[in-house]
Amino acid sequence: MRFSLKLIPLLIMCGASPALAAQCQPPGGFNAWLEAFAQEAVASGISPRTVSATLTGLTPDQKVLSLDRNQKVFKQSFQQFAANRITAGRLRKGAALLKQHASLLARIEQRFGVPGPVIVAIWGLETDFGAVMGKQPAIRSLATLAHDCRRTEMFQGQLLDALRIVDRGDMTPAEMRGAWAGELGQTQFLPTSYIRFAVDFDGNGRRDLIRSTPDVLASTANYLRGYGWRPGQPWTEGTANFAVFQHWNRSQVYQKTIALFATKLAGGV
């Protein structure tokens, strides 16, 4: 579909800003919702060109809705979950990457206060150190979840920030591929976290969490610092730094797995 962009200059001229999120699952279906959302995005300051280029032709993805309703992995016990993720091979790879990127990780810790083992543990858990980032078109996934009424407000916000990532030139819509819920990059940032915490640590003028290892690792550290990471303090369960992991993932099983993986890496495996 093509949006009614003739309405957009009027919205800008009037200084309109959305008071409410676009109504989820309106009578006109997905296309009616997408039209309303497009107008809201422009009223939020995103360029009409970005909105049209990014949203035109989208259709909902029923597979994404199915995955959203069947997240069984976090129902495992900590022992089951950790055993499947802190493998001997992943520990060896993590230890090798700690050595390979020792200078980079030292600079990141100096700036953000987060030690290398914690960053590398998250890197390994999220995408097997960048090997498995997902191939789902992020814009389509986010639009599907934003149109759905289960968590519409959250995902409309994520979709707006995905458009902002495109608008500021960090990524093109085609480059925005990741996990089924719209997570992007080697440590799987949702768009709102990308906007808030992604940093250009390699100095090339873009915040690239897909191809740039310096940007990926520094942005991960910046995320943890943003939620209160305390430099030089432990991260084991019951500490202030362990509590920061809940902002990374709400599952305590996942939080405990980050802590254990990082501890093993810090101990030289």
Results as ranks from 00 to 15, higher is better:
Ala121Val: 03
Val132Asp: 10
Asp68Ile: 10
Arg69Thr: 10
Gln136Gly: 11
Gln110Ser: 04
Arg150Ile: 09
Thr56Val: 00
Gly94Asp: 01
Gly113Asn: 05
Cys149Ser: 05
Lys99Pro: 04
Lys99Ile: 08
Ala88Asn: 08
Ala88Leu: 07
Leu125Trp: 05
Gly130Cys: 04
Leu98Cys: 08
Ala95His: 10
Ser103Gln: 09
Leu125Tyr: 06
Gln110Arg: 10
Ile122Leu: 06
Asp68Ala: 15
Asp161Gly: 09
Ala83Pro: 04
Arg92Gly: 02
Ile139Tyr: 10
Gln79Asn: 10
Gln71Cys: 10
Asp68Gln: 13
Arg69Ala: 14
Gln156Thr: 10
Ile119Asn: 07
Ala106His: 02
Arg92Leu: 00
Lys93Thr: 06
Gly157Glu: 13
Leu160Gln: 09
Pro60Trp: 06
Asn70Lys: 12
Gly134His: 13
Gly94Ala: 05
Gln136Ala: 15
Pro117Gly: 07
Pro60Thr: 00
Ala83Arg: 10
Asp161Pro: 06
Asp148Asn: 13
Asn84His: 05
His101Ala: 06
Ala143His: 07
Leu163Phe: 09
Ala82Phe: 09
Leu58Ile: 00
Lys63Gly: 09
Gly130His: 02
Asp161Val: 04
Val120Pro: 04
Val132Met: 08
Lys135Phe: 14
Asn84Pro: 01
Ile108Pro: 08
His147Asp: 14
Pro117Glu: 07
Lys93Tyr: 03
Gln156His: 11
Arg151Pro: 11
Ser141Thr: 15
Leu163Ser: 11
Ala131Glu: 10
Leu67Asp: 08
Ser66Cys: 01
Gln110Asn: 03
Gln76Thr: 03
Ala96Thr: 09
Pro117Cys: 07
Ser66Val: 02
Ala162Trp: 08
Ala95Ser: 12
Arg140Asp: 02
Asn84Lys: 13
Pro137Asp: 12
Ala106Gln: 04
Thr152Glu: 11
Leu98Arg: 09
Leu142Asn: 14
Thr59Ser: 07
Gly94Arg: 02
Leu145Ile: 08
Leu67Cys: 03
Leu163His: 11
Gln71Ser: 12
Ala138Val: 15
Ala88Gln: 12
Ala83Thr: 04
Thr152Gln: 11
Thr144Gln: 05
Leu105His: 07
Lys93Gln: 08
Glu109Tyr: 06
Arg140Cys: 02
Ala88Phe: 08
Gly57Gln: 02
Ala143Val: 03
Thr87His: 04
His147Lys: 06
Arg111Gly: 09
Arg151Gly: 12
Thr152Ser: 13
Thr127Lys: 03
Pro137Asn: 12
Val64Arg: 05
